[in-house]
Design a protein around this nucleic acid. Structure first.
Lengths: 237, 237
DNA sequence: GAGTGGTCTAGACCACCCC
DNA sequence: GGGTGGTCTAGACCACTCC
């Protein structure tokens, strides 16, 4: 599973994040890194390219490669575009869940379409209120295909579905499409997220795929507007 | 400027977007594509890898590469994570701008830090209301470094700053960090975006970089909540 | 076993930057 | 001219899927 370029990537990522490599610092040139890691230049480039895409490194032709300025100084919890494994990992603090509703339903046309299912096939419908450090923060409506993700129960829903999928079912989550929008809060939001009428929610609609490209989850997460923000870094090809 | 892998990427991107290649359709295998485009396998892989990152293609080892399902059926305007060239390109309709304020100020500590400038250096401050099909949609506060982007005037602000930077100044925009959040609308939003008190805004904070890694712009765009959403696709490495 | 994509190599030539 | 990253080649071996 591990590859040479992932190992090199992880080493640099760790060194940038723990401050061994400082912002704007020049790293070794590629030929030197080839010798250091005993590999070809393409392998070094592949590792560094990922760091460039993630906004951790910057490269200048003819000059060298440099650590990017991070400039992360906000009060809200950062939901990273690159984080696929749900709230449990994004929040550095304790995440707990209250199950508001958990049932099997018949898939409607829309959801069946998103999840590559046929209408009226069975579908999990999961509605959870999620707490961070005991504060209610996210209302999450999740639909999952029980043919792909069997055996979900309340124990799993109280902790992390994603851990269950990867550790117990031995499936690998591969990618996700996310749509972020601002919404007027409704009465349910007021009740569970303790919001006032004029306070909005940050809604994230998501289709998540396994690493074999099959969609397994369709969800809507409504976040307290004052506790979350969504960060992306984009690069021109 | 153009490279072989970009040309191949563009051909596939065009064929996926115009429907020549249909969702779930299998494309030719890599060796066949090598012959067709008269190039090595690594070049084909590089082109297809970008399409995979963008969520347009999916690949299965041992089987082949397939066009992804798009499933894009929303009413709001899609702000793509990958779009660096501003509103003028994202909206397919006519974009016009009203300049609410345009002046030179002294950079404060925070902005100077984001833009790699020294405090009290001169800084453009631009405040625009942007219309799509004559409807007011976005309130945009932009700060730019006049040492990097000289010669901005009202004519440019009425159309597209990004066009000016790329076509007239011959600079190339390279990357951007974006932070998306939901905010309670304030009186200025109510006045210019014609929002009611309980209607929120979708705010995008952005630092944009030239392709030499130098930050040139720091901005806050406040979008009407009912007309915009922000889409990303993320892939596990 | 045949076909497919994933990784990796050892080199090549080029564009760009600085001296 | 010497150093750097960007692109590209022509192969190699491997892991996975299907027959």
């Amino acid at each position: 599973m591990s590859t040479k370029y992932r190992e090199i990537y992880n080493i640099f990522k760790e060194e940038i994040e723990n401050g061994t490599l400082k912002p704007n610092q020049k790293i070794s040139d590629e030929l030197t890194l080839c010798k250091k890691f005993n590999c070809s230049r393409m392998t070094i480039k592949k590792a560094l390219d990922i760091l460039v895409q993630e906004g951790l490194l910057f490269r200048k032709r003819g000059i060298g490669s440099f650590v990017m300025n991070s400039t992360n100084t906000h009060q809200r919890i950062t939901l990273s575009e690159r984080e696929l494994t749900g709230l449990t990992k994004s929040a550095k603090n304790s995440v707990t869940s209250k199950i508001l509703d958990f049932k099997l339903i018949f898939a409607n046309e829309t959801i069946a379409n998103f999840l590559n299912m046929k209408p009226n096939e069975p579908l999990y419908s999961i509605y959870r209120l999620r707490y961070i450090n005991n504060d209610p923060c996210v209302l999450e409506q999740t639909y999952m295909n029980p043919a792909l993700i069997p055996g979900i129960n309340e124990d799993i829903l109280h902790s992390s579905i994603y851990n269950y999928i990867e550790k117990d079912l031995k499936l690998r989550i591969g990618s996700a499409k996310k749509i972020t929008r601002a919404c007027i809060s409704n009465e349910t939001d007021h009740k569970y997220l303790l919001l006032e009428k004029e306070e909005p929610v940050l809604e994230i609609e998501q289709i998540a795929y396994l690493d074999n490209g099959i969609p397994f989850e369709y969800s809507f997460s409504r976040h307290r507007y004052d506790k979350f923000e969504f960060t992306t870094y984009s690069l021109r090809i």
